[in-house]
Design a protein around this nucleic acid. Structure first.
Length: 698
DNA sequence: CTTAGGG
DNA sequence: CCCTAAG
C-alpha cells in the first residue's frame, strides 16, 4: 500500500493511562469495523442516542424569549427634561419612533387586526386610573397596592437621574396576576415619577380597546404598554399615578454607576417605571399544551429551514456576553439531564429545536398566531396528567401520595447589575442589558423554592414535609431563578461554575460585575439544588451540571402545570430585556454557552478516539460522553479538530486551560494513525471498485 | 441523524 | 461553537 503502518498510539508511546478506564481498550479496538450505517440507524431509531443536550438551556432560552417578548425599555429622551415634554408623548416606541395619537387610536381600533407590520412596541406611559401624586418615586405605594392586580412580567425601570439621558436601569420582575394566566393580553404597568407617567392596566379596568390591543399584542408579539384609553389619559395628565401600583415592583434600586459623578443613584431623583406584562401567547399556547409533542413537532417541521437561517442571522450577534463557562467535570459525569426533561421528553427531543423553539415558533407563527408561550415564564401548561407534575409525588409516600400540582406564575430573576458609560447610546444600553440577561438566562441559573416567602433550603425534605403538598400553602409557594452558586461566588470568571454569569471578554464599555442574587434579601451563596431532587420524576442522572437544568425544570413545570405566583416575595431581582423585534428581525437566538473542555474531558475524548477512530463521532459521544448532555458529537469532533491543531502549535500559542502535552501527543498519534487508516480504506475501496469495474467489463 | 469541513 | 452540504 505504500504506507508505513503507524503503530497503535498506545504501543508507540506506551502512555500511562491517565484514567484507569483506558485500560479497557487495546489495540483490538482499532480493528473493530465501523458500525454499519444501517445498524446505526437502527440504534438511532431505538433511541440509543438522542440529543438531550442543553435541555435546560432551552428552558433558559424559553424563559428569555418570553421575557424578551415583553420588552420594556424606554427610549424617549424627552422625558428627561420634565413632565411636560414627556407628557406630550407618553408613548415611547422601542424603535425610537413615537407614534402620534392618531396612530395609536388607529391601532386601538384595529383591534384584532392590528397590523403586524407596525410591529413597534409601544411603551405607553399613561394612566387611566385615578390620579395619583406625581413627582417622586412612590415605589412603596406601588409595591403595596398592586399585588393582586398586576400580572405578567413586571419591570421596573429606574432612572437614576431624570436629567441624565441615558442613565437608567431597569428591573424586571416576572410576575403574573391572578387573572392573567390565561389571558392573551399583555398587562403593562408603567409607573414613573417625575418625568414619567405611570400606566397601570388593571384587569378590571380594561377597556375593550385595551383588550383589543392587548390581544393583538399577544398575537403578533408586539408589546404595547399602555393602550388607548390609558394613553389618552396620560396625555391629559401624564403625571398621574396609578393608585394601584404594582406590588411586584422592587423596592430595591438598581445601583448603577450611571449617574454622573458617581452620585449614588439613590440620592438622585428617580424615575421609575414599572411595566408589567402578561404573557401574550399564553392562551394560545395553553391550548396547544395539551399535546406537547405535537406542538413542537408542528413547529419544527415548517421551521426547519427557517430555523437555520434565523440562527445564522442571530447566532453571532448575541453571544459576546456569553458567560465564560467553567468546566464540567468528567465527561460522563456531568450533563444536565434533568428529571423534568424526561417528563417532557417527547416535546424536546432535540436540544436545538428546543432551544430555538421560542424563536422559531414566533417567527413562523407570526402570521397565524404566536403559540409560543412555550412555557417560558408564564405559560400555563396544561397537563392532562396531573400526577406528572413537576414536583410530582414523592416516592416515599408511595401510592398514598397525591400529586402536587404547582403553578408557577412567575419567576424572579436574579438581580442584574450593569455598568455602562454614560456616553453609551440607549441602543447600546439595551444591547448590554439584553446580553447580560441572555448570559444569565442562558446558563447561570438555578432554582430556588420559596414557601411563604421563606427559602426552602433543605432539598431532602419532601414536599409533604415542607408543606408544599398542602393546598393551603400553594399560594405561598414560589420559585426563584438565581445565579448558580459558582457564579455568585466567583462572578467574573467562575472557574468551577459551568455557568458563569459574566462574560469573559466583555466589551470595553460594559461589564457585569458579579452580583449576588439579592432575592429574598438573602444572598444565597449556597447552591440550591434543583427542585428536581425532591421529585421522583428524576431519573437518576446524577448530573453535575447545575444551573440550566433547573430552568428546564421550571419550564417543564410551567408547561405541564400551572403557574403560581408567590406574591409576598419582594422581587428584587430583575432583568431587563429589551427586544427589538422587528428592527432586526432578530429573534435573539442564543448561542450555546461556551464550555471549555476540561482536561478530563479531553482525556476521555482522546481515549475514545484512540479506540474508535475519527469519523465515528457518534460512537465517541456514546462511549465517552453519553452523560454529558451538552457535548454533542459535533462538539467532540470540533474539539478533536482543535486538539489536533493545538498539538501542532507551540505551547506559547495555545490558549485556555493547558492540555497536558502527553494528551496532545496522543492526539497527534491517534490522528496520524486514523488518518492513515482512512487513507488505507479509501485505497482499498478504490481498488475494489476498479476491480469490479474491470470484472464487469470483462 | 451523522459526517466532514468551513467559518 | 455554528452552519451546512452530503449521505
Amino acid at each position: 500500500m505504500g504506507f508505513a503502518d503507524v503503530g497503535h498510539p498506545c504501543l508507540l508511546y506506551g502512555h500511562q493511562p491517565l484514567n484507569p478506564k483506558r485500560l479497557d481498550y487495546g489495540f483490538i479496538g482499532y480493528h473493530v469495523p465501523p458500525v454499519p450505517r444501517a445498524a446505526r440507524s437502527a440504534r438511532r431509531r431505538r433511541g440509543t442516542f438522542k440529543k438531550k443536550v442543553d435541555d435546560n438551556q432551552m428552558c433558559a432560552f424559553d424563559l428569555l424569549a418570553t421575557i424578551a417578548g415583553k420588552i420594556l425599555l424606554e427610549t424617549d429622551n424627552t422625558s428627561t427634561d420634565s413632565n411636560s415634554s414627556s407628557r406630550k408623548d407618553p408613548r415611547v416606541y422601542l424603535n425610537n419612533t413615537v407614534k402620534n395619537e392618531q396612530q395609536v387610536e388607529e391601532q386601538e381600533l384595529k383591534g384584532e387586526s392590528y397590523n403586524q407590520e407596525t410591529g413597534d412596541r409601544i411603551f405607553g406611559t399613561s394612566d387611566l386610573g385615578p390620579q395619583a401624586p406625581v413627582g417622586d418615586c412612590r415605589l412603596k405605594e406601588i409595591q403595596q397596592s398592586h399585588t393582586d392586580t398586576c400580572s405578567g412580567l413586571a419591570s421596573v425601570i429606574t432612572n437614576s437621574d431624570c436629567s441624565e439621558k441615558l442613565g437608567y436601569a431597569e428591573k424586571l420582575v416576572i410576575g403574573k396576576t391572578k387573572n392573567d394566566i390565561r389571558s392573551p393580553h399583555c398587562n403593562v404597568d408603567a409607573v414613573s415619577s417625575g418625568c414619567r407617567e405611570s400606566c397601570d392596566i388593571k384587569p378590571e379596568d380594561e377597556s375593550d380597546s385595551n383588550r383589543m390591543i392587548k390581544t393583538e399584542l399577544h398575537k403578533c408579539g408586539n408589546l404595547v404598554v399602555g393602550s388607548g384609553a390609558e394613553m389618552m389619559c396620560s396625555k391629559e395628565d401624564p403625571a398621574v399615578w396609578d393608585s394601584k401600583p404594582s406590588a411586584l415592583v422592587s423596592s430595591d434600586m438598581v445601583k448603577m454607576p450611571l449617574c454622573r459623578d458617581h452620585i449614588p443613584c439613590s440620592s438622585i431623583p428617580l424615575c421609575r417605571h414599572v411595566l408589567k406584562l402578561g404573557s401574550r401567547d399564553v392562551d394560545e399556547n395553553s391550548s396547544r399544551c395539551n399535546q406537547p409533542s405535537t406542538k413542537i413537532k408542528a413547529f419544527r417541521q415548517p421551521s426547519r429551514i427557517g430555523d437555520r437561517r434565523i440562527r445564522k442571522l442571530l447566532a453571532s450577534k448575541y453571544w459576546k456576553v456569553a458567560p465564560k463557562s467553567g468546566d464540567e467535570e468528567l465527561s460522563n459525569i456531568d450533563g444536565e439531564s434533568k428529571p423534568v426533561y424526561r417528563i417532557r421528553k417527547s416535546c424536546y427531543k432535540r436540544q436545538r429545536s428546543q432551544r430555538n423553539f421560542p424563536f422559531k415558533k414566533r417567527k413562523f407563527s407570526d402570521h397565524s398566531s404566536v403559540s409560543s408561550s412555550d412555557g417560558g415564564i408564564s405559560s400555563e401548561g396544561i397537563s392532562s396528567s396531573p400526577k406528572k407534575g413537576i414536583i410530582g409525588e414523592t416516592s416515599e409516600f408511595g401510592a398514598t401520595q397525591h400529586g402536587v400540582k404547582l403553578r408557577i406564575k412567575s419567576f424572579k430573576v436574579p438581580e442584574l447589575l450593569i455598568e455602562i458609560p454614560e456616553t453609551s447610546t440607549v441602543g447600546s444600553l439595551k444591547r448590554t442589558v439584553l446580553e447580560a440577561v441572555n448570559a444569565i438566562l442562558g446558563g447561570g441559573l438555578q432554582v430556588g423554592v420559596l414557601l411563604q416567602g421563606k427559602k426552602i433550603r433543605d432539598d431532602d425534605k419532601t414536599l409533604l414535609q415542607t408543606g408544599i403538598s398542602n393546598d393551603n400553602e400553594m399560594d405561598a409557594l414560589g420559585f426563584t431563578l438565581e445565579p448558580s452558586p459558582a457564579q455568585s461566588a466567583q462572578p467574573l470568571c467562575p472557574r468551577e461554575s459551568p455557568f458563569p454569569i459574566c462574560s469573559n471578554t466583555p466589551p470595553p464599555s460594559t461589564r457585569y460585575p458579579a452580583t449576588p442574587t439579592l432575592i429574598q434579601g438573602t444572598c444565597n451563596a449556597v447552591p440550591e439544588p434543583p427542585l428536581t431532587n425532591t421529585g421522583t420524576l428524576v431519573e437518576s442522572d446524577h448530573d453535575s451540571a447545575p444551573s440550566p437544568t433547573d430552568m428546564s425544570i421550571e419550564k417543564s413545570a410551567a408547561d405541564s402545570k400551572a403557574l403560581v405566583v408567590v406574591p409576598e416575595m419582594r422581587v428584587e431581582a430583575l432583568a431587563v430585556v429589551p427586544v427589538h423585534r422587528k428592527s432586526k428581525r432578530s429573534e435573539i437566538v442564543q448561542r450555546r454557552i461556551r464550555r471549555p473542555f476540561t482536561v478530563a474531558e479531553v482525556e476521555a475524548l482522546v481515549q475514545a478516539v484512540e479506540k474508535l477512530g475519527t469519523g465515528r463521532w457518534r460512537d465517541v459521544k456514546l462511549r465517552a460522553f453519553d452523560n454529558a448532555k451538552h457535548r454533542t458529537y459535533v462538539d467532540l469532533k470540533d474539539k478533536w479538530k482543535t486538539l489536533v491543531h493545538t498539538a501542532g502549535i507551540s505551547p506559547q500559542q495555545r490558549r485556555g486551560e493547558p492540555v497536558p502535552q502527553e494528551l496532545l501527543d496522543r492526539v497527534l498519534t491517534a490522528h496520524a494513525y486514523w488518518s492513515q487508516q482512512q487513507a488505507k480504506q479509501k485505497l482499498k475501496q478504490q481498488q475494489t471498485e476498479t476491480c469490479l469495474l474491470l470484472e464487469n467489463k470483462i
